[in-house]
């Protein structure tokens, strides 16, 4: 039955080559931890992606309860954390995942760096990777404010003040981030929008490029 449905669609859309390309690419011995245990370092990119997926899913569930305004934000997080069934786990996964994804991304970057995988012909993908790195830090910075507790508020205040000391464009950056003179209602709304729409959009686009390039070039050869 399923096979007939598949064949029916495949005959019209020729979908087999689309996923076969991903399924059939070769995994060489030197990156396969089943053959060389030390090759687990090649898993860090995949694990980063795995945790990124967890972040997106847990974040989607968080927005079912989170209310992005200064009056309700804190209460909604508190409610989710203390009252909602498994709310503490959903929030916990997003909270700890945010740190873990940075750790994994750092380890992945070090793997790529120390195996010299950023060299010709993979220069561009390294640059794409660094852009992903900055987007991830941006996600961390904007997400930290959202619970609207004291930790969030004062950490962001320091961050914004540091940004404001940049010559020439400092005040502009500050106003862009805070939406006004003070860290308040406007700021929370902006950080929410940046955290939930702008940066994830950029991240997904960059990740798409990252993966297409990896498929194109294949993984770097053995040292």
């Amino acid at each position: 039955m399923l096979k007939q449905v598949y064949d029916w669609v495949d005959e019209r859309l020729n979908i087999t080559p689309m996923w076969r390309d991903i399924a059939d690419h070769e995994v060489p011995e030197h990156v396969n931890p089943a053959h060389h245990f030390s090759a687990f370092v090649y898993c860090f990119g995949g694990l980063t992606f795995f945790i990124t997926v967890i972040q997106i899913l847990s974040g989607m569930f968080l927005t079912m309860y989170y209310v992005p305004d200064v009056i309700n934000a804190y209460e909604s997080v508190k409610y989710l954390q203390n009252e909602v069934a498994f709310g503490v786990i959903v929030r916990g996964m997003h909270h700890w995942g945010a740190s873990l994804v940075i750790v994994m991304m750092f380890l992945h970057t070090l793997r790529v760096f120390f195996t010299g995988a950023y060299k010709h012909p993979r220069e561009l993908n390294w640059v794409v990777g660094m852009l992903i790195f900055f987007v991830m830090l941006g996600l961390g910075f904007t997400g930290y404010l959202l619970p609207w507790d004291n930790t969030a508020y004062f950490a962001t205040k320091v961050g914004v003040e540091i940004a404001a000391t940049v010559p020439f464009i400092g005040t502009f950056i500050k106003h862009l981030l805070t939406g006004g003179e003070i860290l308040g209602a406007q700021t929370l709304a902006r950080f929410f929008a940046i955290h939930v729409f702008f940066l994830p959009g950029a991240l997904l686009g960059l990740l798409g490029v990252h993966f297409v390039v990896i498929r194109r070039q294949g993984i770097s050869g053995p040292l």
Partner: peptide, 24 residues
């Protein structure tokens, strides 16, 4: 480890020591 949540943001609280997330 349940994720931490301090008191609701109080801009007038001058005694709170700011601490950015560890990777900053």
């Amino acid at each position: 480890h349940p994720s931490p949540l301090t008191d609701k943001a109080d801009p007038t609280d001058t005694s709170f020591t700011p601490l950015p997330d560890w990777y900053f």
